[in-house]
Simulated scan of single mutants.
Amino acid sequence: MIIKLTSKNFDKAINKAITILKNGGIIAYPTETFYGLGVKYDIDSALRRLYEIKNRPTEKTMPLIIGSKDELSLITDTITSSAIELMDRFWPGPLTILFRARHGLSEYIVSENKVAVRIPGESFALRLAMAAKFPITSTSANISGMPPADSASMVFNYFGENIDLIIDGGKTKGGLSSTIVDITDNTLKIIRHGAIHI
């Protein structure tokens, strides 16, 4: 299913996406850079299916987006002072932060006891995360090793009917991916240089 976004159906598209996520489906949605693939963070079968359609190595965990810092309690029990400083300065925006993972999270979103998350910049992705009130995966909409999709048609060419819902927000602007930092021990380590310079 493809929903072409308009000002009139924006809320309906959000609600449809959330329903599909809660039912274990996979959605594709526009972010502030490229299209992302989303499943609900705690549905293992959906996470496994997402890995399969992307042909993504299981050792490469999926990053998450959230709509509010309040949702961090769902995925971590430890928020350092450095993390608070970075969040206050760069969120919403293209900064992904690694936190100590809360016990019991899926292996598909945890690596070395860490989970990666951000609040996205102004985009459909941000509005979706704010409305959902739970973490959503935000892995790039592509087959592993292929260019990230910047249009709904490119997403469909990659995945066809394997995606339960594609939100067509037009061509995204592309650009650099998010910067990834690890501050789990209160010391800043840059894991990937990206759109934000720290």
Score class of each variant (00 low, 15 high):
residue 2 I to E: 08
residue 8 K to R: 09
residue 8 K to T: 11
residue 9 N to H: 04
residue 9 N to M: 02
residue 10 F to T: 10
residue 12 K to M: 14
residue 20 I to W: 00
residue 20 I to E: 05
residue 21 L to H: 05
residue 21 L to I: 08
residue 22 K to H: 04
residue 24 G to N: 06
residue 26 I to T: 14
residue 29 Y to N: 01
residue 33 T to N: 06
residue 36 G to V: 12
residue 38 G to T: 02
residue 42 D to V: 09
residue 42 D to I: 08
residue 42 D to M: 04
residue 48 R to V: 14
residue 49 R to F: 02
residue 51 Y to V: 12
residue 53 I to W: 12
residue 55 N to H: 11
residue 60 K to A: 11
residue 60 K to T: 11
residue 64 L to F: 12
residue 65 I to H: 10
residue 67 G to T: 15
residue 69 K to I: 15
residue 75 I to D: 04
residue 76 T to K: 01
residue 78 T to Y: 14
residue 81 S to D: 14
residue 84 I to S: 09
residue 85 E to K: 14
residue 86 L to K: 11
residue 87 M to E: 11
residue 90 F to N: 11
residue 91 W to G: 13
residue 92 P to M: 06
residue 94 P to K: 01
residue 96 T to P: 06
residue 97 I to L: 03
residue 101 A to C: 03
residue 102 R to E: 04
residue 103 H to C: 03
residue 105 L to F: 11
residue 106 S to T: 13
residue 111 S to H: 03
residue 115 V to E: 09
residue 120 P to T: 10
residue 122 E to M: 09
residue 127 R to A: 15
residue 129 A to S: 15
residue 129 A to H: 09
residue 132 A to V: 13
residue 132 A to S: 15
residue 133 K to M: 12
residue 134 F to L: 07
residue 135 P to R: 01
residue 136 I to L: 03
residue 138 S to H: 06
residue 139 T to L: 07
residue 139 T to P: 08
residue 143 I to F: 07
residue 144 S to P: 08
residue 145 G to E: 05
residue 149 A to D: 12
residue 150 D to Y: 07
residue 152 A to C: 05
residue 156 F to N: 02
residue 158 Y to D: 05
residue 158 Y to I: 10
residue 166 I to Y: 03
residue 167 I to S: 01
residue 168 D to W: 01
residue 173 K to M: 07
residue 182 D to H: 04
residue 183 I to Y: 02
residue 184 T to I: 01
residue 188 L to T: 04
residue 192 R to Y: 06
residue 192 R to L: 03
residue 197 H to F: 09
